[in-house]
């Protein structure tokens, strides 16, 4: 028994299909519990009022946006080193989920920021980093779509992911440096973690786990779709060859 046996598409499909219902149900349950608990059964913040409750969407989405990229990085590495197709397809499958998470984080951040900071957008280091992350996702997905040959696309996007990771980390530091340089002691930046009181933390953790399971289920589901699409392509190619022979 080794983890590499899931590199076999058939084995991957069989196993992922077995665990997916459980994943869907538990993630839906956790998200529902977490969000309902968070929205209706936590006290309003004395400073921020009820707007603070968007945190239950914002923080898990932001967390998963970064973790999705991290997962793509690992999957890309596995593809580059061990050439397992499932791994490349999983990286491809995770990207759209990741970009949606990034968008949710950005949108909820803007909605939160509007009443709190009086502006939809500020060039706060965190926000800026997420914008850069969004661009990385966009480029990665566009590159996948632009290349016809599946192996070439997998190779190129994998290298883009590796190089992009280095530059994303670098951007994070650059952005931090740049903004502190602009406004000393960046007054708009809230360190969210420290502001979270105990009353908020439990539903927040539940939401985070729910989002995580949801992400895993999505990736399993989409990877399965990609595997099937690849198989259909191979079958069609075979049919065309049969006709012309």
């Amino acid at each position: 028994m080794s983890i590499w046996e899931y590199a076999n598409p058939r084995k991957f499909l069989r196993t992922s299909e077995r665990v997916m219902p459980a994943l869907w149900v538990s993630s839906a349950l956790l998200m529902a519990v977490g969000l309902v608990w968070g929205f209706f059964f936590t006290p309003d913040d004395f400073r921020q009022g009820s707007t603070v409750k968007i945190i239950f969407l914002h923080v898990p989405a932001a967390l998963m946006a970064i973790n999705a990229w991290f997962m793509m990085l690992v999957a890309s590495l596995i593809w580059v080193i061990r050439r397992h197709h499932v791994s490349a397809l999983a990286a491809r499958a995770a990207a759209p989920v990741g970009i949606v998470m990034t968008l949710i984080a950005l949108a909820t951040g803007a909605i939160w920021g509007q009443p709190m900071w009086g502006t939809w957008w500020a060039w706060d280091p965190r926000l800026t980093s997420f914008l850069v992350l969004f661009l990385f996702y966009l480029g990665y997905i566009a590159l996948w779509e632009a290349i016809d040959d599946p192996d070439t696309a997998a190779d190129l996007t994998a290298i883009l992911c590796l190089v992009g990771t280095v530059f994303a980390v670098l951007s994070r530091y650059a952005v931090n440096f740049w903004n502190q340089g602009l406004h000393q002691g960046a007054s708009l930046s809230l360190d969210k973690k420290e502001n979270v009181a105990d009353a908020f933390s439990n539903p927040l953790y539940i939401c985070m786990i729910g989002f995580g399971l949801f992400f895993i289920a999505m990736v399993f589901y989409r990877t399965g779709t990609e595997i099937r699409a690849r198989r259909i392509k191979a079958l069609l190619a075979r049919e065309r060859q049969g006709e012309s022979a």
């Binding site: 850069v132 661009l135 990385f136 966009l138 480029g139 566009a142 590159l143 883009l160 190089v163 992009g164 530059f167 994303a168 670098l170 951007s171 530091y173 650059a174 952005v175 440096f177 740049w178």
Partner: peptide
Amino acid sequence: SLLVMPLYVPTLIF
């Protein structure tokens, strides 16, 4: 341009 732009961010900032 889409691919290179985010890679330029650190250089441009510094």
